[in-house]
Structure formats: C-alpha cells, structure tokens
Amino acid sequence: MVSTALAPPPGLRRKRNRERLRTLGFLSPWLAGFCVFFGYPLIATVYFSFMHYNQIQEPDFVGLRNWTYVLTQMPLLGPALGNTLWLVVVMVSLRVVFGLGIGMLVTRIRTGAGFFRTAFYLPYLAPPVAATVAFVFLLNPGTGPVDEILGAVGLPAPSWFNDPGWAKPSLVLLSLWGIGDLMVIFMAALLDVPKEQYEAAELDGAGAWGKFRYVTWPSITPVVLFAVVTGVVQTMQYYTQALVAGKLASGVSVGPGTVIQPGYPDHSTLTVPQLVYSLGFQNFNTGAACALSLVLFALAMAVTTLLMRRRAGLLPAED
C-alpha cells in the first residue's frame, strides 16, 4: 500500500490541475486545427484508400486493390515519382544555395541595400499562377524576349517549356526567380552572427572562405536545415506552377469544361500531386488517389526524417 505521506497535498494537486487546464486552454486552438485540418483528413484518406469510391455512389470496400493498382499497375507513377524526386534534389539544393548567396550579397551591400532587398523579394509576392504565366511568356520559344536576346548575341535558344529536356530546368529557373522568401530568412540568420567572431577570425588570419567555414556556417546551420526541410515538403507538393506551365506551353485554351492531361511535354512536368488530382477529380477514382496520397506522405516523412537525423551533416553534433 502506498504511503499517504508521498501523495501531494490537496492544494498542490488543485494548483497542478489548474495549470494543466490553463495549458490545455492555450493549446485548444492548435489542437482543434490539428484535428480538423490534419487528423480527420488523414484518417479519411486511409479509410478511402481501401474503398472503391467515385464521389457519387456509396464507398465499397475493395481491400488492397487500390494499393495494388497504384504500386504495380499505374503507368505514370514512375515518371511522376522521378520528376518529383528530381525537383526535390535539384530545386531545393539550388534554392538554398542561391538564397544563401543572395542573402550574403545583400547584407554586405553598403549603398542601396534597401532597393536590392525589395527587388529580390518582390517576385516572391507574385501569385504562383501570374508568375508562371509571365515566365512562360518570357521563355516562349521563338517569340519570347529571352530567346530574342539569346539569338541577338548568337547563342542557341532552347524550347524551354516545350522541350522535355528543358521543362524541369525552366521550372527551377522560375523557383529561383521567386527566391525572396529564403533570402529574407538567410539575411536574418546572417545578421544575427556576432561580429566579434568575425573580428577574432581576422586576427587569426582567416580569409573570406575561412570566416564563412568556421564562423558563418556553424551559426546558420539550423536555419539551413529549416530551409532544406521546408523546401523538401513544399516541393513534394509541387503542383500549380508545373500544371499551369504545361497547359500554357501546350497551347490549349483553358475554359469551363476543358479537361487537360497534366505533364506536358511528354510527362516531363508530371508530378505526384498532379497525378493525385487527375485520379481523384478527373477520373473520379478517389480510392486510388487516396492510396497515392499516402505513398507521397510516407515518402515525404521518410525524407524529412532522414534530413532531421544528426548524421545528415546539417547540424553540428553538440546542438
């Protein structure tokens, strides 16, 4: 039998209960949002992945049939996964490097820094559809301003979004054009590095590379990890820019009732989220779309977990 001397006094228990209720009250908005916008949709997605459901008739249990179709029979799963992983590796890497470089450049400018900050950040404020439309117009083969400039200086002009080999690099250029979000994040991290450490490094004879390697990089690695993880998650959900660019480059007019298969040209811009949309809302195969969504969710969780491990090399061991 437990001794009553070890039990907390009633007053202390009431105080702890009040603290728990107060904490729960502060957490309740987040808990409600988590349950409504994440927990319930995730449970519903798992449920419908085992059902045949066309959004009209009642769901019918089919077991693992949707999973078998998605993993072994879906013809476009390979290209969609390949394009998505290519964008994750190339786009996220270049955005982090480019954003860090622009942030370092702007923080060192002494005259006109405000103008350059505004100039680099403004493209990020453009809506994704409007930015993609403008970029497709600029890179329009033959008549676009970019190809005209390249032709004037004697350089070959690619077909950009109309060429399967250049479509994904064109999307990467579009993402680098809107690098303002990462620039601001890296600027804040760079300005937070103590100047005394740079002065000490100079006294030790460190050059520009030495100061970056031994002072700047250890201070901003948590921010770099944040940029990489959030970039991977966002790129795994890459949908709007690739879809709009493919539609505009194909020359098909988009109007009410128009059904366009994504991935132009030759499925080079097809991503997994586009495939999910095509399955669920164009072919009304909601069960297979839910199964594919869970595959994408598991893949994103696996990559994020890998990045969060210390041996990924982004965080020093002492953090």
Rank of each mutant, 00 (worst) to 15 (best):
F281T: 07
R18N: 03
T111G: 01
V2D: 06
A245E: 08
N83G: 06
F284M: 08
G313H: 11
L296T: 03
G78S: 11
P273G: 04
G207V: 09
G11F: 12
C290E: 11
L85C: 08
M91R: 14
N285E: 15
G114Y: 07
A206H: 07
L243T: 10
I109A: 13
Y124E: 03
V89D: 09
Q274K: 05
N54Q: 11
V295W: 12
L174H: 00
F115C: 06
Y198G: 01
R110F: 04
G255M: 12
P164E: 10
R65M: 05
A157D: 09
W30A: 13
R311N: 14
A289Q: 07
I109M: 15
E148W: 14
F98R: 00
Q237M: 06
T240P: 10
E19L: 15
A317C: 02
V46Y: 04
L94G: 08
Y264H: 13
M74T: 09
T235K: 00
P194K: 09
V133F: 11
W177F: 02
M74Y: 12
G151D: 09
L279K: 10
L125P: 06
A131M: 13
N83E: 08
L24Y: 12
V233H: 01
R310S: 14
P169K: 05
T143A: 11
T230R: 02
S93F: 10
Y121N: 03
W209T: 15
T258A: 14
M187K: 08
Y277W: 13
V62M: 07
F186Q: 08
P316H: 15
D192P: 10
A300K: 00
Q282H: 14
M308G: 09
A188F: 09
V229G: 01
L203I: 15
L6A: 15
N54C: 07
T143I: 13
V223W: 07
P158Q: 03
V215L: 07
G11Y: 07
